[in-house]
Design a protein around this nucleic acid. Structure first.
Length: 101
DNA sequence: GCCATGGCTAGTA
DNA sequence: GCCATGGCTAGTA
């Protein structure tokens, strides 16, 4: 496993309950400001194996970025269970819920 | 070759 | 809405 991948995993696991981080923010924290898409890939391939709180990762607009319907719905539910409120337009207020890693 | 991004622009209101 | 990007991974040889 590459150092970047390890960093990303560590960072994601450290997101507290009730908080979120964005793909780009995680990439930047892991030392690669343009590596947002790799965070996507890592979530895809590593979430199960490393027990990542994948639902606490959203895009920079505050949106759930998942395309698949079931997982999308699940993410919304998991976030709400942690006390995160989604707006009418389905967005999350990053000024409130963003975790500064 | 991929892509669950992000930042910038053009186009609408 | 477009498209440049980048680190990884699947797939071939």
């Amino acid at each position: 496993m590459q150092p970047f991948t390890e960093q990303v995993i560590t960072i994601i696991r450290a997101i507290p309950v009730g908080k979120v981080m964005t793909y780009g923010q995680i990439a930047a924290s892991a030392g690669s400001p343009r590596g947002a898409r790799q965070v996507v890939r890592i979530l895809h391939t590593m979430s199960d194996k490393y027990d990542l709180p994948w639902h606490r990762v959203i895009n920079v607009k505050g949106e759930i970025a998942i395309t698949e319907d079931e997982s999308r719905f699940l993410q919304k539910i998991l976030l709400e269970e942690e006390g995160i409120t989604l707006n009418e337009d389905g967005r999350i207020d990053l000024s409130i819920y963003r975790h500064d890693g």
